[in-house]
Design a protein around this nucleic acid. Structure first.
Length: 478
RNA sequence: GGCCCCGUGGUCAAGCGGUCAAGACAUCGCCCUUUCACGGCGGUAACACGAGUUCGAUUCUCGUCGGGGUCACCA
């Protein structure tokens, strides 16, 4: 049988990392098995609907490269793919389930329901309306009494199923309440809609978060009552922010879009989240989407929660930066380059060249090159470097001589500048590092820069170099 | 609290009765070097605890502890 998986988000906001990973795994499994991946929108709770959420879901999936074969905006043979457009279908099946004995009409009002709960708000529905006669039900229905349809869960026994990652899961039916399947507004609850849709849409593998682990037996009860084949279940452990909290937008944790906005490379984000909860057979961790599709397997799924580790994402992002073409880098880096004070004052190509080997997350770009436009009094202690054997005293000797040397260089090009400075070191009887370190510090006022003395000199150009060298000497003599 | 699930280094994670318990990130050190970064090499660092089962448990069972999830006319 052809594998069909689905991603069924509720349009209540943006896509967080956990959601995206669920979508990714569903996509990867389907692709690996040569099956189809479907997008379905679960919008049966009008109170939680958020305006742009649907568009965000479409955009995020598209942006991440997760293509769905069927969905609201791409069509398919099993539509509609938006639950709010399937109301009639749910009603039909809910009534059918009532006939089959798997559900029943309930006319209890809010007050009665409240009275069933104890001081802690805990208490289950008492199956009161299950005992209504057919006539009573018909009369109330005819009289227009508001109602819901509840699932009829057996009082005895238990439900067991084999989860493909968690193994055997068993829940006693007495732990399960006769939940509402069809709300008084006529729309289904998730508990009912997911079962009807997954069956009608031919979903073979249900991939979702582990929060559904213990409610799955009640869904199975419905599959069984309808005489439908149960799908295979693949529950996924949560992605945590730390040992105790789940990663969530509510806590202000990074969403996919936030990460992209910060300049993490998209491919790295996908690659990284694929690795949170799943591991490949080989030790190769850096993988493109295509490689993930090729290597994905259920056996690599882990059942314990994993903590989102930004440093590792950062590293992976850097790996992607390093391997991308200069053109691609230029394109991605431009918006961030523009945020720097130095933008427009130096050739983009020159900036990009020194940045590419050193950038992991694009938002780091401005801080790496702002020194090109920011130059002021700095601590003379910067001249001290144990390994280079340099300090402020050495600088006092080096700087005037370097100014003289650099004045004599015509074309400000790295190799020529480097040669000139090394020659100067020899002339002064110093180590190359002593001259190079002092000059670089004098030129930039920074301890760390994206490149060495001659590279910085090339970038700054003759005029600025001589100007800064003069200032640096003045600072030193203050 | 009841029920369900989870528990290997700081983090991700391999392992599926016998291993000196992989690998990656992070961290530390060394090398390379024109600082930084890249790259190369190396180090520190883990089976939550206690009982079983077994010739032998990280691996199987039970308990304890710790953590998460779930108990809605939300998904």
């Amino acid at each position: 049988m052809k594998v069909r998986t689905r991603f069924a988000p509720s349009p209540t906001g943006y896509m967080h990392i956990g959601n995206l990973r669920t979508a990714l795994y569903g996509y990867l499994y389907a692709k690996k098995q040569g099956g189809s991946f479907i997008l379905r929108l679960e919008d049966t709770d009008s109170k939680r609907y958020v305006e742009d959420a649907v568009q965000i879901i479409y955009d995020t999936l598209k942006d991440a490269g997760i293509r769905y074969d069927e969905g609201p905006d791409v069509g398919g043979d099993y539509g509609p793919y938006i639950q709010s457009e399937r109301a009639a279908i749910y009603r039909e099946y809910a009534e059918k389930l009532v006939e089959l004995g798997g559900a029943y009409y309930c006319f209890c009002d809010k007050e009665r329901l409240e009275s069933l709960k104890d001081a802690n708000g805990v208490g289950r529905y008492d199956k009161h309306c299950l005992h209504l006669s057919k006539e009573e039900v018909r009369e109330k229905l005819a009289a227009g009494v508001p109602y819901v349809i509840r699932q009829n869960v057996p009082a005895e026994g238990s439900g067991t199923y084999e989860d493909l990652v968690y193994g055997t899961v068993t829940v006693d039916f007495k732990e399960i309440e006769d939940g509402v399947l069809l709300k008084s507004d006529g729309l289904p609850t998730y508990n009912f809609a997911n079962v009807v849709d997954d069956h009608l849409m031919g979903i073979t593998h249900v991939i979702r978060g582990s929060e559904y682990l213990s409610s799955t037996p009640k869904y199975n009860l419905m599959y069984d009552a309808f005489g439908w084949e149960r799908p295979a279940y693949i529950h996924l452990p949560p992605i945590m922010k730390n040992a105790h909290e789940k990663l969530s937008k509510r806590n202000g944790d990074a969403s996919y879009q936030d990460l992209v906005d910060k300049g993490y490379i998209k491919e790295a984000i996908i690659n990284y989240i694929a690795l949170l909860g799943w591991s490949p057979k080989s030790n190769q961790e850096k993988m493109s989407l295509a490689e993930l599709e090729e290597n994905f397997s259920l056996s690599g799924l882990n059942k314990s929660p994993s903590i989102f580790d930004e440093p590792k994402l950062r590293w992976l992002s850097g790996e992607y930066v390093r391997e991308m073409s200069d053109e691609k880098f230029a394109q991605l880096a431009l918006p961030f380059l523009k945020r720097s004070k130095a933008y427009g004052k130096y050739p983009d190509a020159a900036l990009l060249k020194i940045l590419k080997p050193r950038v992991e997350v694009l938002e780091d770009i401005p801080s790496k090159i702002d020194f090109l436009e920011e130059y002021g009094k700095f601590d003379a202690g910067l001249y001290f470097n144990k390994k280079m054997k340099s300090d402020a005293e050495i600088a006092k000797v080096v700087l005037p001589a370097a100014a003289e040397t650099l004045k004599g260089v015509e074309t400000y090009e790295n190799a020529a500048l480097y040669a000139a400075l090394v020659e100067l070191a020899q002339k002064l009887g110093m180590k190359n590092g002593q001259v190079l370190w002092c000059v670089r510090v004098a030129l930039t006022g920074r301890e760390n820069t994206p490149g060495g003395a001659s590279e910085m000199a090339e970038l700054l150009g003759k005029e600025r170099c001589l100007e800064r060298l003069a200032k640096a000497q003045a600072f030193l003599n203050e």
